[in-house]
């Protein structure tokens, strides 16, 4: 069974060590929650997996292939989709164009239509706004669009960076539910970076806690959620 395997991953920005010897594996059909305080290195971890930053040392493997030497596009084309923080959508394009963009490399012109309809099925509010420019969308809709654009290429690995940031609790809850269903239905590997530990632990099977660039806990999500002391210490609730 293919897994996403991160081994001894270290990233530095100049003299600052953002990540030091991070190792864990994420399995198919599971949500792996990456937790930690602000500045712990969670975003850097995702950026290193998709090649947006280059690790100083260590490897990233998916399905036996080493990703950390590949270019960003190539990693994406290997089935790794990354939704960066801040609901990154292309504002000057319509919802439809944004989704088409995500499907460009994967599907022929004729296939693209049905694939995009699937995304609209997953996120009905987007369907109503398909011809609107992305900069007219609300925060929740933008997040849906960003995730939709990642999903439209039918990835095998989905990396999500703070998808709930700035969203109303009810929207967050809905988003998490969709993610949970999707992970199981499509056998996805999901790596979910969140500050909102409570909501992400509610759908995660596994949890990795990072502190100052190092993995301090790597365990079952349920176990972590049940360990009051750990929660207090690292997650603040």
């Amino acid at each position: 069974m293919p897994v996403l395997e991160i081994e001894d991953l270290s990233v530095s920005y100049g003299a600052v060590h953002a990540l030091t010897d991070v190792s864990f594996t994420a399995a198919e059909g599971e949500v792996t929650a990456v937790l930690g305080a602000n500045g712990a290195g969670k975003t850097t971890l995702l950026r290193a997996i998709t090649g947006l930053v280059r690790p100083r040392k260590g490897t990233v493997r998916y399905d036996g292939e080493q990703l950390d030497k590949m270019s960003v596009e190539k990693i994406v084309r290997h089935g790794v989709a990354h939704v960066p923080e801040g609901r990154s959508v292309i504002e000057e394009m319509t919802v439809d164009e944004n989704l088409r963009l995500g499907a460009l490399w994967r599907f022929s012109r004729r296939q693209r239509g049905p694939v995009i309809e699937e995304i609209y099925g997953l996120f009905p509010p987007l369907a109503e706004r398909r011809r609107q420019h992305a900069n007219t969308l609300s925060g929740g809709e933008r997040q849906m669009l960003a995730i939709g654009r990642a999903l439209v290429s039918r990835p095998k690995v989905l990396l999500l960076d703070e998808p709930s940031l700035g969203l109303a609790p009810i929207v967050t809850a809905r988003l998490m539910a969709v993610l949970r269903d999707l992970t199981q239905a499509s056998n996805l590997i999901v790596v979910l970076v969140e500050q909102n530990a409570r909501s992400s632990l509610s759908i995660a099977q596994k949890a990795v806690v990072i502190n100052l660039g190092r993995v301090v806990v790597c365990d079952d999500a349920a176990k972590l959620a049940g360990d009051t002391e750990l929660r207090h210490h690292y997650l603040g609730y």
Partner: peptide, 22 residues
């Protein structure tokens, strides 16, 4: 598709590369 890629790269290179555009 080229036109769309051109604009995507202009607007946001990172988003474009994450969408699989070279």
């Amino acid at each position: 598709r080229f036109g769309r890629s051109f604009r995507a790269v202009r607007d946001d290179e990172i988003a474009a590369s994450l969408a699989g555009i070279h």
